[in-house]
Amino acid sequence: MLIAIFRAARLAVLAAALVACGPVQAELPVQGFEVQAAYPHDTGAFTQGLFYLDGVIFESTGLEGASSIRKVRLADGVVLQSRATDPTMFGEGIVNWDGDLLSLTWRDSVGFRWDLKTFAPKGSFRYDGEGWALTQDGRSIIMSDGTPTLRFLDPKTLKVARTVTVTAEGRPVRNLNEIEWVKGEILANIWMTNRIARIDPRTGAVKGWIDMTGLPETLSQRDPDAVLNGIAYDKAGDRLFVTGKRWPQIYEITLKPAKNPVP
């Protein structure tokens, strides 16, 4: 039923994305990419959150009855550790903070705190609205909720310290899905598109787009729900990874210089 709802809403979501993003694509710089390596990825994983830490990938998966948090060996895709989350809830984004792993749910307005090493439950927290994705900048936990608003949370209380509205050429950008802090910017998948936004965390302004069109999974229409969703960054190795829901690969990429750069 949930997948059917996604598919029924697909045209409406794409139309909304085009309204938010389409007119500005000719103005903002657009970067391409080169694939440096490809690693196996579980095609059963409906990827909602992704980050890289201490040599492994941490991933959260969604769908009611199939949501989980997991630790994955990058080289061969082997799931080293996993824990199913509440089967009545749809799992969403994850982030690490001070020995914990925090996870969101989509429409239940509740998040969970887990021990990062053991995945043992340590508590829960509440938030208003939907939960889509999490990342952190070393000072704040950053949360997306599907709207143009990003929330910056106090890591101790998980209360909203400030918000920023994401805009492209002054127009709000919706459907900010999985997010990642990379070199002082927030990278955000735009749901059901092949675009990643490069966001200024101070102003919310989109500085440019990364166009992931050309990856094999972006060219296939066999599963309309298997969209680009998952960004992870290895800071020590300066490596950027992307994947998607039910994709067979995690790709390590480098970015090409931008086209039509802003003067």
Rank of each mutant, 00 (worst) to 15 (best):
M192I: 07
A226F: 03
A37K: 06
G131E: 08
R202N: 12
L80Q: 13
L18Y: 09
V242D: 02
A236M: 06
N175H: 14
A38G: 02
G91L: 10
D137M: 10
R7P: 00
T118V: 13
P148H: 06
A168P: 07
V78A: 15
E169W: 00
Y251E: 02
T193W: 05
A15K: 12
D42N: 15
S68F: 01
L14V: 12
P148T: 10
T193V: 04
I253H: 04
N175D: 06
K259N: 09
F58S: 05
A197V: 11
R202V: 10
V173A: 09
K117W: 01
E64Q: 14
T43F: 00
T167G: 07
L153P: 09
E252N: 05
G237S: 09
A38Y: 01
V110M: 12
V56R: 11
L101N: 08
L102Q: 11
P172S: 10
N96D: 15
Y251M: 04
S60D: 10
Q221P: 00
I210N: 00
S68R: 15
D154C: 13
T157K: 12
V242H: 03
T88D: 14
E169L: 11
D86Y: 04
R162H: 15
D108Y: 08
R246T: 11
A161P: 00
P40C: 09
Q81Y: 03
E59K: 03
I69E: 06
W106S: 05
G237T: 04
V160G: 07
R162F: 13
L2M: 04
T254C: 02
L102K: 09
R7G: 02
R198T: 01
M212G: 09
W132G: 06
K235T: 14
V160K: 07
P201H: 09
A120N: 07
P23N: 09
W114G: 08
R246Q: 01
T88V: 05
T88K: 13
V182Q: 07
T243Q: 03
I69F: 04
P155R: 06
L158D: 08
D76F: 05
R174T: 10
V182P: 01
P216F: 03
